[in-house]
Design a protein around this nucleic acid. Structure first.
Lengths: 167, 167
DNA sequence: TTGGAATGTCAACAAGGCTGACATAAAATC
DNA sequence: GATTTTATGTCAGCCTTGTTGACATTCCAA
């Protein structure tokens, strides 16, 4: 009796489908758990998840341009702009006009922005670490491997550029 | 030099924080990849992700009541009702008045509902299987373990009841 | 110098969350 | 039998975060 669902690529279609259902559900619930704590914290500041994402990626790629951020986040500039404007108004993000190209805005977190971002990361990190502690080191390694394989290849490339190649 | 980020619970705070950042990003991008294909398919039918979730859980727990579904999905009845109404109107979901308790509506997928749900599951499953094939069997086992550890304990309990205990 | 890309902004709209208030029917309780 | 509680649905209105379309500005490049 095969139970992994991975090796049973053919043969037991129904059981495999049900196994995938369970993974889908786990993914749904896990993502909810993953965002629950930051969401609560953001709400206290009058922000939403979109603000968190912007803060996160500006922190990760300081000096990045709006266009680059659009590319990573995969939303329209109008949508991002609304979020970015409130963050700039509230003094969490600094948008500097580019030296070379004055159409570009280079984005940086202010001290206040870094603080909020760190607080958000911290509660999210605590939840992750708690889960990691329960699951064990080997499981975590596998977890990361599967996550990376699930990403859109294009996005994955851009993500690596941001994470390592600097802008 | 520790690189796992799990065992380094203390000592190298900064490196650990950056490791968690990477996991957060991977989680964000992976979830996007996870929902991208069904989202596209749903859009063609004029539906959204909320419809998918309703279809999925009605399929998984046929005959479930509205209240139970609210519990699992964690949304308000107004929000669910909007979705459920369109699904019933479009003939994808059947809402039967309860025999024992006639206040309750027991929800079932119609044949058309089962069909759409299967199509959605299929594209999502293909994406999952593709990632699983790349990552390998051991990684997948770890992946599932971590996902379950990330879920809210309360939700996890209810989830297991639905998945196994029947309603 | 002029056309086209990059950027930002305004307006309007949709999905899908939310709250609050209220109606109905049925079950449960007193 | 009357009252309360429960399950569900519905109306109205709000918020966040997506979307398009239109348009101004700025700059680069032909």
């Amino acid at each position: 009796m095969k139970t992994t669902g991975v090796s049973a690529a053919h043969g037991d279609g129904l059981a495999e489908r049900e196994a995938l259902h369970r993974v889908s559900e786990a993914m749904f619930f896990a993502y909810r758990g993953f965002t629950a704590d930051p969401d609560r914290m953001l709400q206290e500041h009058g922000y939403g998840r979109a603000h968190h994402r912007a803060l996160h990626f500006i922190h990760r790629a300081p000096g990045t341009t709006v266009n680059n951020l659009l590319d990573i986040l995969g939303v329209t500039k109008q949508s991002l702009n609304r979020v970015l404007r409130t963050l700039v108004e509230d003094g969490l993000v600094d948008a500097r006009v580019g030296d070379r190209d004055r159409r570009e805005r280079h984005l940086h977190l202010t001290v206040a922005g870094e603080t909020l971002n760190r607080d958000l990361s911290e509660v999210q990190g605590e939840r992750l670490n708690a889960a990691f502690a329960i699951a064990g080191e080997d499981a975590v390694t596998g977890f990361k491997t599967v996550l990376e394989a699930m990403m859109d290849p294009d996005l994955r490339r851009r993500f690596i550029e941001v994470a390592e190649g600097r802008k």
